[in-house]
Design a protein around this nucleic acid. Sequence first.
DNA 1: CTGTATCCCGAAAGATACTG
DNA 2: CAGTATCTTTCGGGATACAG
Lengths: 122, 122
Amino acid sequence: MFDDCADSAPRPIRVGGKWTAMVLRCLEDGRPRRFTELREPLHWITPKVLTETLRAMERDGFVSRTEYDENPPRVEYALTDLGRSLLGPLDTACAWARAHGSRITEARDDYDTGVLGPDAAA
Amino acid sequence: MFDDCADSAPRPIRVGGKWTAMVLRCLEDGRPRRFTELREPLHWITPKVLTETLRAMERDGFVSRTEYDENPPRVEYALTDLGRSLLGPLDTACAWARAHGSRITEARDDYDTGVLGPDAAA
DNA sequence: CTGTATCCCGAAAGATACTG
DNA sequence: CAGTATCTTTCGGGATACAG
């Protein structure tokens, strides 16, 4: 998700994987979600990957995992305060993307046609 | 670096690799840098990786590459306006990290000792 | 329902050596 | 100086199948 402390420090520390930000979004309204409930908005991410994502977020203190001793089993995930505190930076990044994201696509198109040549007769 | 548009959209788009944010930091003062000049603050990143990083950033329109026809060769990299516009979100992320980053470490320690058990006699 | 257990793949990153 | 060329390793991510 983010690179932390990208000061001119020697080594970057990355926090969050491919799906972390979207899990944040899924939980931002405060309502706890069940495992399966999370899969749907995440484009039916495979259980293995969702488990990995949630475990990592739990380990980092971003989400809480509450297991209810019922049958069938029920487990609910929710954002912690720390997790919620990530929504600010996330919004900032999304705002940037909305404002300038299209320029990346344009820049790529320019670069690619420039490299291949406008008349790339491959 | 960032996941863009992490709305509850189906698929995340990632922009920037492991070193992107730090290259941004190296160039943020506006002074153009040469290839070798960038390697030092980046912990002597290998030329291959630096080339890949800079090429990707150039393609995305974040840095400009200026080649001077001299001998020995001289090439300078600098931030574009688009690249500079990333500094805002980056600062936000770094501010978050300074404010809450230590809580991640603590959460991890808690989680790990909790999982292994305080008396993990492996 | 909530996960594990395997297997697999491609991209990213790094080590090393060489070139214009 | 500013890269390129290989080779190797790592690892995140995903498909599929199975378990408590």
